[in-house]
Design a protein around this nucleic acid. Structure first.
Lengths: 160, 160
DNA sequence: CAAGATTGAGTAGTCAATCTTC
DNA sequence: GAAGATTGACTACTCAATCTTG
């Protein structure tokens, strides 16, 4: 085998490049959205999922899987969003343990107002800087890494 | 021009793939490091920078630029690390406003102990899942995006 | 007044413990 | 007992205000 204990120069550059990208891009997109529309990154993710779900409603655990939020984080976050009137909680008729999360009118208005601006930022700082091939490469990379993580241990560091 | 208001399917997939990758990989690497060695991701980043600096010492603002931490975040974080004995603060002789951050013996021992395990995790969940070409593609992508962000506005969302 | 740095208040995320229902 | 979900305590990050020196 090759030397496993260290990263060579190519590997090192790739890892650090990824760390920078990973940190900077979502930060910039999120902070613009926060300033312009008063929604955080996590707010937006939750609203997107709900707005795409039939009836604007999902079970909590489904929302957790879709967003990759840890369950306690999701619960806290939904409480805050409920206070702000963006979502509401409802009981589940067929399973009394469960809860539904429902998009309110205010929540739907918020996501519809924010989406165009958000798309614009994603374009400006990410999509438009890259070629088609690079976008596709990113999809391939993401899938390979996801597969690796799933093989290795399905739950480590994931939403529980 | 093409339709700018929405993301097409390819763009959408690429953005979501990036978001997943961006969220999952650092989370898993960091949580393993935390469990095995008691260091968080930010702890590790700070220790790496200091250990690579001559004399294990840097000015605070240099450390801020290197890590991309906002200055108040850095200050808070260094206070916590100082409490744990990983770093120490010193005054700057040539500029009395300034402060040096110095790696302690304990801090150096911690990074030397953690580095091999950390490298192993980065390999397992990231590097080894990808080809040389994919690693290079990531570097190219990162550089293009960084250039775009710098052109657009040097300071938005960056460490101030 | 600008640069280097710190502080405090408020908000968000994590971990373990808990509660209820299947 | 396990699944769905919430809570509380603790830790971490952000933003604006502050302090000191150049």
């Amino acid at each position: 085998v090759t030397q496993r204990k260290w990263l060579d120069e190519r590997e090192q550059r790739a890892w650090r490049a990824f760390l920078t990208l990973q940190d900077q891009v979502p930060r910039r997109v999120a902070s613009q959205l926060q300033r312009e529309k008063g929604l955080s990154g996590p707010d937006y993710e939750v609203l997107v999922q709900l707005s795409e779900a039939p009836g604007g409603r999902m079970r909590s655990f489904e929302l957790g899987k879709a967003t990759h939020f840890e369950k306690s984080r999701l619960s806290h976050h939904l409480s805050r969003m409920a206070c702000r009137g963006l979502v509401a909680r409802e009981g589940c008729p067929t399973d009394n343990r469960g809860a539904f999360v429902v998009l309110t009118d205010k929540g739907r208005a918020a996501i519809e107002d924010a989406a165009p601006v958000h798309v614009e930022h994603v374009r400006r700082w990410f999509i438009d800087a890259l070629t088609r091939d690079e976008l596709d490469a990113l999809v391939a990379i993401s899938e390979k890494v996801a597969t690796r993580m799933a093989e290795d241990d399905p739950d480590l560091g994931a939403a529980k």
